[in-house]
Nucleic acid binder design. Structure first.
Lengths: 171, 171
DNA sequence: CAAAATTGATTGACACTATCCACCATATTT
DNA sequence: AAATATGGTGGATAGTGTCAATCAATTTTG
């Protein structure tokens, strides 16, 4: 810091650990976006070769359909923070791989009721085991800290999800 | 929960807020990936029309070059958790927009020393103001909570960044 | 009840991303 | 001097996010 308390530019750095993040150091979105890349990479590596590998929405869809048979695409889209069209493509992919079935909802003709196939159920079980293990990626933080971050982020997550559906944000 | 303590599948849900996230509810990567989408959307809206809008690495590059003139691409890549080729493309874009200059590093012929142009410096100032405001996206959480999450995520961030450079992970 | 508006899902288009691999030039190690 | 490692580029490929348009079914409303 300079005498007036303002940060000044520092000489060229050669190693990452010498980098001063400046404004970004107090910016939540920066860390979320950076960690997103790391976490996604790790998850992709763990899912290597599986049908739900690569991409973000498939796992969410798989699990939610498993837990809520007959759930509709738009609900999954909202939970995954994607728009309906993005989710439709993911479901296309999963259907093509024989993981899910799209059935007409008896109550509402516009709606689809999603179900896992036998193959899908098996995949869901396998993937759940893998996802549980993904906590290892953060092996060097304590359970307390892990729980603490999750609790905070879960709060943010639900607030945003609910806000969007409340004012019908077209996501 | 069923009597044996195991969760069972619940009937089809129609609203997001009734969704049970199951395993995902205890999975940090799920929340990071979901929040990444929300946060990115918000940031894109705020940067609407600016030359660094859309995409994740430009802001990081802009700020780091501003703070560390002469910094090299690979260091920015590491800080942004991207690989070198991804960062090269971002720098291409910024150079095309006249925000940065790529100069040869006098010390090492393989290396580039990056600098902001006047236009780049101006952009950096404007964008910093916007990024600071992006805290508003989390308007309904207290400063204490905001600081708390950031502190935790910052720790994870640095651990991962350093681990990667330590064992030369090819990102 | 009929017309109008809304909703759920899909599709096409477009720009951007992440990853991997190969490549080149320059440094460093042996 | 030869082998190896490093920094940066470029191509290829698969995937993403967004927007607008479309279509059918449902709900609203006049």
């Amino acid at each position: 810091m300079a005498a007036d308390g303002k940060r000044v530019s520092t000489p060229a750095v050669t190693r990452v650990e010498d980098v001063d993040l400046g404004v970004l150091d107090d910016t939540l979105s920066f860390f979320i976006r950076a960690l997103n890349l790391a976490v996604t990479r790790d998850l992709d590596a763990r899912l290597e070769g599986m049908e739900v590998a690569r991409g973000t929405g498939k796992i969410t869809a798989l699990f939610l359909i498993d837990r809520h048979p007959g759930i509709r695409p738009s609900v999954i889209a909202a939970a995954a923070m994607k728009d309906r069209s993005a989710m439709a493509r993911i479901l296309d992919d999963m259907e093509r791989h024989g993981l899910i079935r799209r059935e007409p909802d008896p109550e509402d003709g516009r709606v689809q009721a999603l179900h896992l196939t036998e193959k899908g159920k098996k995949a869901s079980q396998e993937v759940q085991a893998i996802v549980r293990q993904s906590r290892d990626f953060f092996h060097d933080i304590s359970d307390e800290e892990y729980t603490q971050v999750i609790d905070l982020l879960r709060g943010l997550y639900w607030r945003i999800v609910k806000a969007h559906q409340a004012k019908g944000t077209k996501l």
